[in-house]
């Protein structure tokens, strides 16, 4: 995102500026109230919470976190989510950078047709091929395996990644690659040693938003994976929250365990993440 405008002269000053700032602070408090409430309530006993959900508790009870971690098997499902995310992102990055390189830098028969194929992926909602995919996976016996989530997550992530990386290559002159070609490098070497390193900024963006997407994916594992053994964090937490609907603070503790590391990562890498999410979502 654009950061040119650091020195400011469009600031509203005076009473109006102050009023705006007060309004903004108020809006922010309302906005963050749910999160604050989650943090406070997750450290209370259920009985204490049900009596007065709004009260600031006099004593905090941290046992919820340990209990929630064990009961929701967060450690186990964390590993499943990590596998799904890592493999999908690896597939997306490798396949899309190779394809984008070929669409931008190489010439072969059918190239433009293949490229235009990916535009289809930009407009189609997942729901338009979900039923066919489900039946296909059932016939191929990969329902209830990690592949039934990894494959669609990768395929859905491809089009926008291909487009972004190709646009990036297109915006750069190919003189480096050409001189390497004249020096006698083959295309694979050019791709690996020259083009890929040049594109590292856009590839980082692609990695960021696909990691977030894959990690947060809910609908695909909801439909594809029924056995508890292969559920990622998202759908295992869904089952946990329906099974233990009465254990309110325990549920909130489980959410807190999931959310906290994400907030920490977000505040460390927020520029990258904001860029990644906006670039990824702008595909429409």
């Amino acid at each position: 995102m654009n950061k040119k405008h650091k020195s400011y002269n469009r600031e509203f000053t005076g009473v109006f500026g102050k009023a705006l700032r007060i309004f903004l602070v108020f809006a922010l408090i309302v906005y963050l109230l749910p999160i604050l409430w989650m943090y406070v309530s997750s450290a209370r006993t259920n009985a204490d919470f049900i009596n007065a959900p709004l009260k600031i508790p006099s004593r905090l009870y941290f046992g919820n976190y340990v209990k929630a971690f064990k009961m929701a098997k967060i450690g186990y499902h964390f590993i499943i989510s990590t596998i799904i995310t890592t493999v999908s992102v690896l597939i997306i990055v490798t396949f899309s950078s190779m394809a984008a390189f070929s669409f931008s830098r190489l010439r072969y028969k059918g190239r433009d047709f293949l490229y235009s194929l990916f535009f289809l992926g930009l407009i189609l909602p997942t729901q338009s091929f979900l039923v066919g995919m489900f039946v296909m996976f059932r016939v191929a016996h990969i329902l209830n395996t990690l592949w039934s989530v990894i494959l669609p997550v990768s395929a859905i992530g491809l089009p926008i990644a291909v487009l972004l990386i190709k646009a990036f290559f297109d915006s750069l002159p190919s003189s480096l690659e050409e001189s390497a070609l004249i020096e006698g490098a083959n295309v694979l070497q050019i791709f690996w040693f020259i083009s890929l390193p040049i594109a590292n900024a856009i590839i980082a963006t692609v990695i960021v938003f696909n990691t977030i997407n894959a990690w947060n994916e809910f609908m695909l594992p909801f439909v594809m994976i029924q056995s508890d053994r292969f559920k990622p964090l998202t759908t295992s937490l869904y089952v946990f929250s329906t099974k233990h609907s009465a254990k309110l603070t325990l549920k909130l503790a489980a959410l807190t365990i999931i959310a906290t590391p994400m907030f920490i990562i977000y505040f460390i890498f927020q520029n990258q993440i904001q860029k990644g999410i906006t670039a990824g979502a702008l595909k429409d």
Binding site: G121, S154, A155, L158, P159
Partner: peptide, 14 residues
């Protein structure tokens, strides 16, 4: 170079 991406997209989406 384009084939892995194209094939995956064809098989899983198209």
């Amino acid at each position: 170079f384009a084939l892995p991406a194209v094939l995956l997209f064809l098989v899983i989406v198209v």
